[in-house]
Design a protein around this nucleic acid. Structure first.
Length: 178
DNA sequence: CCCTGATTCGC
DNA sequence: GCGAATCAGG
């Protein structure tokens, strides 16, 4: 994945926004949190809300010549694919997040259709509905931008669409051939 | 153990 | 410049 200008901008925004590196990596997709951190440092915007505590001269641990080949052990024990915040996140999809727990949306039936706030990728935050509107390749592409609950990437309205009950959408059979 | 960011260095 | 491996810590 290349660090396009847009991706860098988004990275900056999310970082300043206070998101963790792994979260940003998930949001961006196609990169690991290491990549994010590395980029963050390269951009010289590492220090976030770090006033000053105890700098403490910290040096890694050169040992031999290079830092990694020293430790010959590679645990790699617990491999957990697609978890927000891991050491090697594989691309799981751009904006489609995993519905950890389906919100009980049985009660309210009157979810108002949100007005498109024409949010750009740069104006999105954790509490902004990330429902894409339009064609990403077209100029008018934007996001819903309405307020969403923390932990939910979409507003109430779009969450309904995103997290449709299974029984409603098991109507497809045909598989697109190779 | 889960996570966090920081650092080094081969590529 | 990039990011995996690793460290150091909460």
């Amino acid at each position: 994945m290349t660090w396009t200008d847009e991706r860098v901008e988004l990275l900056k925004k999310l970082w300043i926004d206070g998101l963790s590196a792994s979260q940003i990596a998930t949001e961006l997709g196609g990169v690991t949190r290491n990549a994010v951190i590395g980029k963050v440092h390269r951009l010289s915007l590492s220090g976030r809300a770090k006033p000053a505590s105890t700098p403490v001269a910290r040096a890694r641990k050169p040992s031999t010549t290079n830092g990694r080949s020293t430790a010959t052990s590679r645990p790699a024990t617990t491999i957990r694919p697609m978890v927000a915040g891991n050491t090697a996140l594989k691309p799981v999809g751009q904006l489609v997040a995993e519905p950890r727990r389906l919100p009980r949306m049985s009660e309210s039936d009157d979810v108002v259709v949100p007005i498109s706030l024409h949010a750009t990728i740069l104006t999105l935050t954790e509490q902004t509905c990330k429902w894409p509107i339009g064609d990403p390749n077209t100029d008018g592409f934007h996001f819903c931008g309405c307020n969403s609950k923390i932990g939910v990437p979409y507003c109430d309205y779009h969450a309904r669409i995103a997290y449709q009950p299974v029984h409603d959408r098991r109507r497809e059979r045909k598989v697109v051939g190779a």
